[in-house]
Design a protein around this nucleic acid. Structure first.
Lengths: 148, 148
DNA sequence: TAGTGTGTCGCCGCTATTATTACATATTCT
DNA sequence: AGAATATGTAATAATAGCGGCGACACACTA
């Protein structure tokens, strides 16, 4: 089963919105930049909108906008908004209940998995879309807002 | 970006070997405990063996053994031995090179992803198979070595 | 020599993901 | 009002990884 690229593309989309300085960006434009299809972008924006990170304007001149300041959008927020599956998959079929090991292994490893997941999430919480946008601006040697 | 179930099942298998006190364990026995097929277990043990974590004895009375003390096998070692895919999947097709955002987004997010991955790995490095085995023993209220 | 267990291959079904087409709906612009 | 535009969502198809299963050569033990 292919692993999801949604997180990376969602960060890409939000960074694009951030450097555009409040001007609506069409899904087609974001799709071009991310080299994917507009429908995929709209699907992502739909999730981000549900999470309160973006909003959209219909009609001519419309497109997607950040729903709040880029400084207030953590990568963890993005991660949670677009990623469905658990970080650690457990046994596909539950292990043997009556076995000494099978009956207790899940409970035994759970604390470690929780700590590991939390450590990862804490790192994602330290960085915001604004940080990424600033880094893109620095690497790309341009000044916000960017014209398209 | 989920892990496969391999990590969880591999930890299960190693914990089973650890509580068995040096007696070879057949793939069939591990499969029964993990509620999966012997072939899957042998595939996992093959990877773990390549990584130097286990070894196998052929013939009657044979089976799998830990290749070193359970205290010296970190969950991180297990993770690296059985998990193929990158934790974070990037764009399926590389983003637009000539775009201000597309051309720099990957480099911009890379440091954060690296830190997040490292934070997770550090947590997995703190725990050993011996820790898990002891916890299973405590929860299961039995004494090692466990008879099968 | 007979029995046992591993290592590996191929095939199948399942599931999640992305690309694509299509269309209803809402909004803006003239 | 009417035309153009952009979103949101559904349906379909292609792709890919994963896990379950049968089979079998090979190695080792008793």
């Amino acid at each position: 089963m292919p692993t999801s690229t949604r997180f990376a593309v969602a960060v890409h989309a939000l960074a694009a919105l951030a450097v555009s300085g409040g001007k609506p960006l069409r899904s087609e434009d974001v799709a071009y930049s991310a080299n994917t299809s507009p429908v995929v972008i709209r699907g992502l924006l739909s999730r981000l909108s549900d999470a309160g990170l973006t909003r959209s304007q219909l009609g001519a001149g419309g497109g997607a906008l950040l729903a709040r300041a880029a400084e207030k959008i953590r990568l963890l927020d993005v991660y949670e908004a677009v990623e469905d599956t658990e970080l650690f998959s457990l046994h596909r079929t539950p292990p043997c209940e009556s076995c000494a090991v099978g009956g207790n292994i899940l409970e035994a490893i759970q604390p470690t998995l929780t700590l590991a997941r939390k450590a990862l999430e804490d790192e994602l919480a330290k960085v915001t879309v604004a940080d990424i946008a600033m880094e893109v601006e620095r690497l790309g040697k341009f000044k916000m807002p960017l014209e398209w």
